[in-house]
Amino acid sequence: MAVFPLWRKIRRTGRVAEPAGPRPAGPSCPKAAALRGSVQLRHVDAGSCNGCEIEIGSVFGPVYDAERYGARLVASPRHADALLVTGPVTRNMAVPLRRTFEAVSHPRIVVAVGDCAVNGGEFAGGYGVAGVVSDVVPVDVAVPGCPPEPEAIAAALRGLTGR
């Protein structure tokens, strides 16, 4: 186990998280008011090209560090307060998305991430596409962009946590 090289690396690197901007003015949707600084998210890929997944990955990485605002990705929709849905909803994913939504306890929030999730984007009208996210489940917060920048996703999450 290379403890000393790793320790040197930790010392040399220090803090890589970028400074947090000012706090959001208030909750971005009325359902978020009850969360008060803690939001658990379940990510659902409804047919995305994985571009948005890379950006979500970096939102929770050390640089953007969305966990400092109280947002956390969890392993089960039962643990979640909000769903993070990416991609146009393909025919195969329409039912699983619906079921995942129903597994979340009330009040449940849906965040549509990326152009595809919001309006179909590149894949709008494709033969395998059942619709956009709002055709299947009610969307509360939309994050446009192809893919959206990590700052935009982090800002949307801060709107939910209020921190």
Partner: peptide, 12 residues
């Protein structure tokens, strides 16, 4: 290298 959520986060 993160900022971290603070030690009160589990309570939140």
């Amino acid at each position: 290298g993160r900022a971290g959520a603070g030690i009160a986060q589990p309570w939140r």
